[in-house]
Design a protein around this nucleic acid. Sequence first.
DNA 1: CTGCTATGTTAGCGCTCCTTACATGATCGG
DNA 2: CCGATCATGTAAGGAGCGCTAACATAGCAG
Lengths: 213, 213
Amino acid sequence: MIGRRPDSERRGYHHGNLKEELVKAALELIAEKGANGFTVAEAARLAGVSPTAPYRHYRDKVELMADVATRGFQAFEAAQSRAWNEGKPNAWAAFQRLGQTYIAFAHEQPAYYSAMFEAGVPLDASPELRLAADRSFQMLRAACEGLIATLPAGRRPPALMMALHVWAMSHGVAALFGRADAGRRSLPMSAAELLEANMLIYLQGLGLSAPGN
Amino acid sequence: MIGRRPDSERRGYHHGNLKEELVKAALELIAEKGANGFTVAEAARLAGVSPTAPYRHYRDKVELMADVATRGFQAFEAAQSRAWNEGKPNAWAAFQRLGQTYIAFAHEQPAYYSAMFEAGVPLDASPELRLAADRSFQMLRAACEGLIATLPAGRRPPALMMALHVWAMSHGVAALFGRADAGRRSLPMSAAELLEANMLIYLQGLGLSAPGN
DNA sequence: CTGCTATGTTAGCGCTCCTTACATGATCGG
DNA sequence: CCGATCATGTAAGGAGCGCTAACATAGCAG
């Protein structure tokens, strides 16, 4: 990390950047056949290399999955950060955007979402993964603190608890109703609407209500 | 369920009741190594039969998993039913018991829980599975209706939506914080406490509060 | 007893994960 | 410019798994 070489991207050696392409292949496969239907061999095939080439870049299958999950958390945190936008124009609106972003991410990046939450990758598989996951959560926690600050001092819930609740609600809705999986029961509303209503009722329970309304 | 045969348990043929024993073995393996670390061959080994014997009882691995999931839903619904106890002594207390039961089930029967929600078994894998899952949900929905009935007519939310919210919160908490998995962040409260607080705030948001309090 | 069906075993194909040994392309010291 | 070295690829193969096909046997019906 001494800064990039100025004269070239250094995509050298045989293939170029096999690592990136393996991640891309893994995402395709996970999106197509679920988190379990992904095999290292098939990813290698997609990348046009021999079945054992991936093992030059990843110790084993789990490490590859962990890399995918890490990139997922990074992309997720970036999306969350954009949605939060430093709490503008007000904490309430920004908070609602966070929830929508969660559902949208689960819906539009099912492969990332699977790798992050459904593939069974332990969070301490790598320090980078742990870091990326923690940053996502800290973002959410900060958003909660922003909302809590609008409450009168006597009625403020612990920010950590609130963040855990919001995460649980988001994850619950996304996991149960937010995927295009088979076996879905027909719902009267979309996952996004369901989560928005859930959040509104929860916030109401905390004594929060939409400003300017 | 016409009552047991009086003269014998009818463990006939070669092994006796291999099907039951395979399910038991599967539960052990899932509890031990997660929903993915389970193999048909190893289950057969645990049951003391050859690696292909299970295929006389299940078309493939998915069908075995689906059977485990079905039995999980049946056990779950039985537990829920006991907890609900027809809404006695009052809808509020019975409802709280339902939530606790959800967390307890996820905690004490991790193998069932994995098979039901994390193994990727589609709900329409079999009619029995679909039925068992639906019955669990109808139970929850009935409980919600019981609670909603205590609200004044003008403020009643749709029971289906409420049931979906409760399920999402329960599942979110259970999936994220209710397992003994690795990679857990240290929490200031248990999953059961977290869910109870979440429910209380949500119900508060609906205008519900504990009776006699 | 004879034959049928349910339940089990053995053999084997194709696939996966991963290791070991080997080949080759890029880079660097001279 | 050349050979050494290291990073990156391939080839071969072992062990395990899902599943099928062919065969064997236990229990039951007649």
